[in-house]
Design a protein around this nucleic acid. Structure first.
Length: 217
DNA sequence: AACTGATCCAACCGCCTTAAG
DNA sequence: CCTTAAGGCGGTTGGATCAGT
């Protein structure tokens, strides 16, 4: 029997939401069968993460969100999941769609146009996160990793997720520009040291730190 | 009102990484 | 080691909607 494709119905959404609320995220291979959905595991995951998950922000991007997005893209390149991780309530799909729409319309974001590789103007170009193995000792990260035992979004990115403050977007912008960011980062770096994170992994955090210090000048 | 091109965005696809056997 | 299954990601597609003529 072929799995269903195309737009999700309200009934399917209802089944999926019920299942996740009851069993939690993860183990996506079991979801279609146990939730009674004739969908593939990827489709279920995509639907939940991009649409059904609570706290997803819809509608236009605010000016400050766009501003932060531009900065992060400059730093990270097309790492949409990482960028989305810094924009509370936004999904990687949202960010990706928004960006490509603006690209198509040739609105100048100070970014390269189509078919043009990113211009490298400084030593702080695009930083590629090193792969990081998720260790249980990384308590400050693992506590946030609610969906799986290894979360690349959390682990390959800036210090864990947004800092322990409510209104993420403004605070992140502030953090990127002010001493509080440095302090937070130092704290985070300290927590990484001695937790089994290797030097390459710490190197990525340091690269980001230096990038933002340059940006803040 | 009808047509058409532009835009948006949900969804799919293919690939990569990782962990388990 | 090798293979396989699963999770996750970025790129792309195509239908729906909007805006202009």
């Amino acid at each position: 029997m072929e799995v269903r494709k195309g737009a999700w119905t309200k009934e399917e959404d209802h089944l999926l939401r019920n299942y996740i609320e009851k069993h939690g995220e993860g183990r996506w291979h079991k979801v279609p069968l146990q939730a009674g959905l004739n969908r593939c595991r990827k489709s279920c995951r995509m639907r939940w993460l991009n649409y059904l998950k609570p706290n997803i922000k819809r509608g236009d991007f605010a000016e400050d969100e766009v501003d932060l997005m531009i900065r992060l893209r400059k730093l990270l390149g097309n790492r949409w999941s990482l960028i989305a991780g810094r924009l509370p309530g936004r999904t990687s799909n949202d960010v990706k769609n928004y960006w490509s729409a603006r690209q198509r319309r040739k609105i100048d974001f100070g970014i390269p146009k189509d078919n043009e590789p990113p211009k490298i103007t400084t030593k702080t170009t695009i930083i590629r996160p090193r792969p990081r193995t998720f260790t249980k000792s990384l308590h400050h990260l693992s506590a946030k990793a609610t969906t799986s035992k290894h979360s690349t979004v959390e682990n390959n990115s800036l210090p864990s997720s947004p800092p322990p403050i409510e209104n993420g977007i403004d605070e992140w912008k502030t953090l990127m520009l002010e001493d509080v960011f440095t302090n937070f980062w130092v704290e985070d770096m300290a927590s990484l040291t001695g937790t089994g994170v290797n030097s390459a992994e710490q190197g990525f955090e340091m690269d980001l730190w230096h990038f933002f210090q340059e940006e803040a000048r």
